[in-house]
Write a protein that binds this DNA or RNA. Structure first.
Lengths: 204, 204
DNA sequence: ATATTATATGACACCTTGTCACTTGTCAAA
DNA sequence: TTTGACAAGTGACAAGGTGTCATATAATAT
């Protein structure tokens, strides 16, 4: 987490810094990103950077976390739209990602995040459904229609969400790494989501 | 890929170098690993390193690839043991990983690989089933008993393998990141594998 | 007005990487 | 055995990065 000093900053300065960081993380993956480059762009002295953040990663995961907040809201509205059908909501979300992704910088940022995933990055994405989190999680689980689902106990819901996000995540990565078109990516994704719904094994 | 020069090296020297590299990659994740440290341990000059490898990553993915070869053989034998039941074979493999993992260094190496996954690392793991690969893939797909599976076309098999590996992989990462005991990890994994078999959604 | 605390700053020590001019080894042909 | 050509070995070096710290400055409380 950024230090308090960062949050005390005048909005203008804070935004400039974030902009510069996003630009750098869109340019190259985290491991190749340099603080030097960020502060050059933002025109702040080196010492100041360390006044605000522990290090590169601190800043990076902060940005990623902020983005997740928006995505969480999106998921909630999609669950409502699809009567709590978690798979349909996920498919819709996947579609939004592919088609609605606005500027190129944001796309590159995501691409770099996906291709050079660290566990933390993946968590930020799957944290959409992570237990022990905010009240938002409760809102989400309440929205999920368990009628559809093949679960006995409540904790099975957690496993289902783990599976859905793991597969969805992998599909994003594939989309970028194999440079699939939106249509190809969506087809592949839909096939896998249906396999998840119905089971990989034949019904007896 | 390492350069030819590396393969021309006397076995002794090559092994020393690999040992040193494995040690370094067990110590810290790829992004923090340093060539300087490797050559210090292996007692080879800096210039030589670049005679053998493009860079850190080149060496790293080579090691990871070598390890995959062994794992592939393991999978083949497990498929035979389980009559081509891909889920049962995967569960068995997961168990082997957890329980049979020999020395601590190998464990740390894997841990670092898992927690700081890049797309390439994940691929090395899922490449167990990647299409377009060796004849071994044919051997593996031939071994898989499609009777069990809920597939119409042959390409669905690919999707099934993607799903199984994505979920298995995620489970490994969770095991390390949440520091689960072998029993906990295995329980979670088995639940998810069964959900995959039978489907996340209720049968109508 | 003064003390206290928060913020800003950039030079610095230290570390890494990848390169390159140069040395050394190898081996087949003369 | 000499020679020459090519492969391999070597370490100093430039370029660039990180995190820290002593010092300067601003802001705030007393």
């Amino acid at each position: 987490m950024p230090k308090q000093t960062f949050f005390n900053l005048p909005v203008h300065k804070r935004k400039t810094l974030m902009k510069a960081a996003e630009k750098e993380f869109a340019r190259v993956p985290l491991s190749k990103a340099s603080i030097a480059s960020i502060i050059r762009t933002a025109e702040i002295p080196r010492g100041s950077f360390y006044q605000y953040f522990e290090n590169k990663e601190d800043l990076y995961y902060y940005i990623l976390g902020e983005q997740t907040k928006e995505r969480k809201l999106n998921l909630i509205s999609l669950l409502k739209k699809h009567n709590g059908d978690i798979i349909e909501a996920t498919i819709d979300m996947y579609y939004d990602f592919l088609v609605q992704m606005p500027d190129e910088e944001e796309q590159n940022f995501l691409k770099n995040a996906m291709l050079h995933v660290t566990h933390k990055v993946e968590n930020v994405f799957t944290d959409l459904f992570n237990p022990g989190e905010s009240e938002q999680l409760k809102e989400i689980t309440a929205l999920i229609n368990k009628e559809y689902l093949n679960i006995k106990e409540d904790k099975d819901l957690f496993h289902i969400m783990q599976i859905v996000t793991a597969v969805a995540f992998r599909n994003f990565v594939e989309k970028f790494s194999k440079e699939l078109s939106d249509e190809e990516a969506l087809e592949s994704f839909t096939i896998e989501m249906n396999l998840l719904k119905n089971g990989l094994y034949k019904r007896e």
